[in-house]
Amino acid sequence: MPRWGMVIDLDRCIGCGACVVACQAENNVPINTEDVYHQRRAIAWIRLERYWEGEFPNVKARYIPVPCMQCTNAPCEPVCPVYATYHTTEGINMQVYNRCIGTRYCSINCHWHVRFFNFWEPKWPDSLKNQLNPDVTVRSRGVMEKCNFCVHRIVKAEQKAKVEGRALRTDEVTTACAQACPTNAIVFGDLDDPNSAVSQLLAQAEREHRVYRLLEDLGTEPNVYYLKKVDVEATATAAEAH
């Protein structure tokens, strides 16, 4: 049984937003118009947070892509009265749109703000209707939605493997965001498979002390790992000091 996880290397991230667009297209996320942004109701299963570091003129832009952390002890799960959100055996925090009644308690209890509510009926321009992904449900108004590690891709790969009578191969599946990332900053895979790209990357980064998780102190055991940005100047100064 795989345990899906993700590694996001912030040293490689250039903040291009390709992951956001890829996710949008893959998962039938409604088009975020300017109006929706102004209402602060934009839906982005993976969002790119931009922070400024330092004072002008020495300002640095810092980017951090934030998908759902797929917490092992997800705080959003027990608060749903109708079991619309639950944990799969493969460690993915799933949302069942049909069960959801929209209490939005899961969003209240999610500290990464990665659960999104459909405030309006989703609309696509006619030209885009044919590009909707047939593998993914189009959500109606009034339900929560969130990143699910492109679960339809995982299911498809697992079914294919079953038909072919074999186990899932290492790194056979990847998410849309990881696939679209031009710098390979996002890597997706099985955390329990020592040969997978995520495990190898994590093991290497562990030696460099670069691994951390967002809001780790809450004890929810997120399955998305971040690799710290390597600050070249700071490293150089530290080396000189030695």
């Binding site: 209402q39 969003s107 509510f117 405030f119 309006w120 108004r141």
Partner: peptide, 13 residues
């Protein structure tokens, strides 16, 4: 729908 309210993320309630 709830779009007509002032609710948004993270002010879901």
């Amino acid at each position: 729908g709830l779009g007509v309210t002032g609710l948004q993320r993270p002010n879901m309630w």
